[in-house]
Design a protein around this nucleic acid. Structure first.
Length: 586
RNA sequence: GCGCUUGUGGCUCAAUUGGAUAGAGCAUCAGACUUCGGAUCUGAGGGUUAGAGGUUCGAGUCCUCUCAGGCGUACCA
């Protein structure tokens, strides 16, 4: 069984719906909309965006320039017309025209204070659970059973897990799918070798790479063995009991290795999420015959193909020798997910190099009617992990880096950075190193725009400075230490006393909009960027605004304690979605 | 060859999807402390966003071309 080590609280939040709930941007947009109506401008206003600088207020509205041509008026004139009709007694407190026609908007401090109070009291931090949840399939990780997981699987596994966590938190019905590679010609060789090894009792699948190499060695050296291997491929595909048993044994052990990695990573995939390639085996022939019936299948050089308009390479669904391919399985999986699982959004978290493949397969699936038109198919593509020299990440002798080794090394390195800490037992250091090391690996990956390649760097990853998990975990722990020192009951209202408090409060309220946007774009780095800005802002706030120090007004102390608490809870929730744990003491 | 993709201070990354003077961290230099956790904070220098055109009120972002890298290019997954 998988132990998901502590971050499995995401799905347990209450899902009650607040009908009155309005998101931050929505509230501001609504105020703008009302000004439009009062000013008799019939256009639909574009959305406000966050101000790029503090001098420009909290939010800005850039629609006046865009409207200028349509209305035949000077943009500043339009802007001033909007401002004249703007309600500055509720959400907003101030509006100014700037530059060619920007409208800078300041939020009302009392209003944001009251909103923060609501969030502080709410276990969901006032993030609404979707009123119309959608069934989403997130396909990620997808390891090959013939080999151990290597660094190439890291990004798919953690980006996919984050996306699944995020959508779950926002209220969607998420179906995690681990499309493992457990089928194909290589398994004939592997189970034939497993059978041989079994006989003399020396079976060891501890190192799958080695096992694969040995099997390959036998295959290349011994004709009899090679024939047997080929024969076994046919046998498992036709349901031979003995071969299937061997195969099942092999898959079980191999999957066990993956689960060890998932466990270490704190990724929520379990056996029930596995829908292997073999699962679709029986559907493959139907996929081909259905394409035939639809009249979009063509034979070319002996292979069964679908030619798409505008593409010069066809999608091959059946080889000349009758075998099926990757694309065939994917089509079967798409159909299963749309028809059987009822998914309205299907997200594939797979390496960017396969974008051509997915573009084609998605088109075929829609043209063949395997997937209804209204189902959103997306390839969540990501870049490759590189070494310091900008080359694909490899071991010193050029082999692939096993994921388990990378994770163990991260924990070891984390241990090195904290081993001299006083007041911790060896056990505590061990537990802490795990949280820090794994968090660092995940955060460093998720913090980067998923579409670009990124350079793997231990030092940067395990630094306390900059946009790292450690900085975030430190910020969290620092706030917890405030509450260890504070003895009493937190009561009273949140009071926005100065600019930094104001900015911190606005930042806290942005959380929901950030999550929405991150979910829409499937970009975890929008969450990390936000969390980093939040943590930085809090540090500055805390530097300047004492909380427990002598001479702080009682009402102010209570207010700041609440802001600190909400900051900590937001960091914790954000990291939880990323699958990263926090600790009270660091 | 064709297709996809990337190019942002010395390095690693951002940039709210077309908005204002392109922001952070590292590194460098200069400050703050009898620390509510200095694993912190404040400040400085460092950019013609690969290059050239174009589109428009406005371009790192869109279009065209050039240069440089990465990837893909029918019976692997």
């Amino acid at each position: 069984m998988l132990n998901t080590s502590g971050s499995d609280t995401v799905t347990t939040y209450s899902t009650h719906i607040r009908n009155t709930h309005m998101k931050l941007k929505q509230s501001i947009n609504k105020t703008i909309q009302q000004a439009f109506e009062k000013a008799n401008i019939s256009e639909i206003p574009m959305s406000v965006s966050e101000a790029t600088k503090p001098e420009f207020g909290d939010y800005q509205f850039n629609g006046a320039m865009a409207l200028s041509k349509k209305l035949g008026k000077n943009p500043r004139e339009i802007a001033s017309n909007i401002i004249e009709n703007l309600d500055l007694t509720g959400v907003l407190s101030k509006a100014e025209i700037a530059g060619p026609g920007f409208i800078n908007l300041w939020l009302n401090s009392e209003w944001i204070a009251s909103q923060c109070e609501v969030a502080e009291q709410d276990e969901r931090l006032n993030v609404q659970s979707k009123e119309n949840p959608v069934k989403v399939v997130v396909d990620y990780s997808g390891p090959n059973m013939a080999k151990q997981m290597h660094v190439g699987h890291l990004r798919s596994t953690i980006i996919g897990d984050t996306l699944a966590n995020l959508l779950t938190f926002l209220g969607d019905e998420v179906i995690r799918q681990n499309h493992i590679g457990d089928w194909g010609t290589q398994f004939g060789m592997l189970i034939a070798y497993l059978e041989e090894m079994d006989e003399d009792g020396s079976v060891s699948l501890k190192d799958l790479e080695q096992f694969y190499k040995n099997a390959k060695g036998r295959f290349d050296a011994d004709e009899t063995f090679a024939d047997k291997a080929r024969e076994y491929v046919v046998k498992i595909q036709s349901g031979d009991t003995h071969c299937l048993e061997l195969w099942q044994k092999f898959i079980d052990i191999s999957l066990g290795h993956c689960e060890e990695v998932y466990d270490k990573l704190g990724v929520k995939l379990t056996r029930k999420d596995v829908r292997a390639e073999s699962f679709y085996n029986d559907a493959l022939a139907h996929v081909v015959s259905d394409l035939q019936t639809k009249g979009i299948l063509q034979e070319s050089n002996g292979a069964q193909c679908v030619f798409l308009e505008g593409d010069d390479v066809p999608v091959i669904v059946q080889k000349g020798d009758g075998g099926y391919l990757y694309a065939t399985t994917d089509l079967a999986a798409l159909r299963y997910r749309a028809k059987e699982l009822g998914a309205k959004r299907i997200s594939y978290v797979v390496d960017a190099r396969q974008s051509g493949h997915f573009k084609q397969v998605f088109r075929v699936a829609k043209e063949a009617g395997f997937v209804p038109e209204d189902v959103k198919l997306e390839h969540i593509a990501f870049g490759t992990m590189m070494d310091k020299g900008g080359k694909p990440f490899k071991t010193r002798d050029g082999g692939t880096v096993k994921l388990i080794d990378l994770l163990d090394e991260a924990v070891e390195k984390a241990k090195d950075t904290i081993k001299d800490k006083e007041g911790y037992s060896e056990e505590e250091i061990k537990a802490l190193a795990k949280i820090i090391g794994i968090g660092a690996v995940k955060y460093a990956d998720l913090a980067i725009n998923r579409e670009s390649n990124y350079i793997f760097n231990w030092d940067k990853m395990l630094s306390f400075e900059g946009n790292t998990s450690l900085y975030m975990q430190y910020a969290y722990a620092r706030i917890q230490s405030i509450f260890r020192r504070f003895d009493g009951e937190i009561k009273g209202n949140i009071i926005i006393g100065d600019t930094l408090e104001h900015r911190l409060a606005v930042m806290l309220l942005r959380f929901e909009d950030v999550l929405d946007r991150a979910a829409e774009d499937a970009s975890p780095n929008q969450i990390t960027t936000y969390l980093y800005e939040l943590a930085t802002l809090f540090m500055r706030f805390y530097e300047q605004n004492p909380i427990l120090k002598e001479g702080v007004d009682e009402a102010m102390k209570m207010s700041r304690l609440q802001l600190a608490d909400l900051t900590a809870k937001t960091i914790k929730q954000g990291l939880d979605i990323l699958g990263i744990q926090v600790v009270d003491r660091l």
